[in-house]
Write a protein that binds this DNA or RNA. Structure first.
Lengths: 242, 242
DNA sequence: GAGCTTTGTCGTACACTGTGCGAGTGACCT
DNA sequence: AGGTCACTCGCACAGTGTACGACAAAGCTC
């Protein structure tokens, strides 16, 4: 049975169709296709992933992929869920919830930064793959076991995820502009120095900050500390609601 | 002088070239082009904005646009900065900083949700337009006047922005999947009910939450409250560091 | 074995994208 | 009158996702 269009996402289609038989022995499985897609995405970002490129990497025609996947969006859904398979959520048994949430947040951030393209998909498609939902489940459990009120667990989980995704999105965007232009941070900085200087002319507070940091602000320095600062704020605020 | 390629962003190019002369009276200004782009983007999202579509809306050829703008990315940079022109940041004179930051956060969220496409640009291009930097300046001022330590102002601003952008990204993504599929929330829900049910089979905590909310969870209900919950957490955590 | 269904592959084609190039047009200045 | 500048635009190119229909080959039933 070919992969039919008409469903909003892979997950809906998978549930609607009877589970696919084990398939013939020889051909590439959908797993392999997704893995190849991940390699292309990691190497060259979202723009590098075309069906033709993926086909040649798999040693098959571009349109053959459509046997396994209804369209490119389904492929991206699968790739995104793969990223969430890399995320570790500690159980609440051994360490206290603050520590556990912090470990989870760092794990999520690192996974997203390993695959910067994932953030673009995250903002465009509903994230309801099985691995993603498993992560959410474990995070729910964390807050539940910590004793959060049932009505607030959802809010708390959403809050943490939003913060991590927001931070990661900014960091990944920076990574991608550099790699897209094949620039070092210093080169980019040099290219934009005049523009920034002239924009700062009427912005005294920012200018002071800029001058204080010196002319060589690579936004990537201190990223981890900045992340921890905001995460600490979140956790303090959450703790106060416990 | 035509718009040359070779610069990483509009802002760098604008600063490098001498300021453009007032131009001939008749033709459309770049302002008008950007405004037309915004209309297309608001109506149909990022995918709807093609240079040809923009050209016909302006009553001109597609390639004529390249006289005013070096490439599509520059156009998107300008559009994004336009969105940041809609954001209000209250001064710190009249109300206390918590209230002021909250007003800013709500203003930012609403602007991003009015233009859901802006979040995709935000994740891809450095956000250094003049209006955006003016917003950042005012937010810096807010925290500065509140008495935050100079080293932490940057962290605090980043934290708030990351949270708002993270939340808005999720909300906008949901908006866009609905409008892209031309579905109501109920229709989408119906389409994915089986998939979600089967995914929840092994996820008791999520299943409990799902059942408690009833089968009709429109993620859009209570969005404002959820936003306020996390924002409250942030502000509490920030206040503790003051 | 023959014949049929299922699984899978692929070449071609279509509509559409961003944009480089070079010719053309009209207004303004000298 | 002639030249320069500010613009406009048609054409073309390489590349995109994917619909379609013709093929092939494996497995099942008789």
């Amino acid at each position: 049975m070919p992969a039919k269009q008409q469903y909003g996402s892979v997950w809906a289609r998978q549930a609607a169709e009877e589970s696919r038989p084990p398939a013939r022995a020889g051909g590439p499985s959908r797993q392999q296709i997704v893995r190849a897609a991940l390699e292309i995405l990691d190497a060259g970002g979202l723009d590098a992933l075309s069906m033709r490129a993926l086909g040649t990497r798999l040693g098959m025609g571009a349109t053959s992929i459509y046997w396994y996947v209804a369209n490119k969006n389904e492929l991206l859904d699968l790739a995104l869920d793969e990223v969430f398979g890399e995320i570790a959520v500690p159980g609440s048994a051994l360490i206290d919830w603050r520590e556990a949430v912090s470990v989870f947040a760092h794990s999520l951030r690192r996974a997203l930064l390993r695959h910067p393209w994932s953030l673009h998909i995250l903002g465009r498609r509903p994230n309801i793959g099985p691995r993603s939902m498993a992560v959410t489940e474990r995070t729910y459990t964390l807050f539940d076991d910590a004793g959060f009120h049932a009505d607030e667990i959802d809010d708390a989980v959403t809050t943490v995820m939003a913060y991590v995704i927001g931070i990661a999105s900014a960091e990944a965007g920076w990574l991608e502009t550099l790699s897209a232009g094949e620039l070092s941070a210093a080169e980019w900085q040099a290219q934009h120095e005049p523009a920034i200087r002239s924009a700062l002319r009427d912005l005294p507070r920012l200018r002071a900050h800029y001058d204080r940091k010196g002319p060589s602000i690579d936004p990537r320095t201190g990223q981890e500390e900045r992340f921890d600062y905001g995460l600490g704020c979140m956790l303090d605020g959450l703790a106060a609601r416990l």
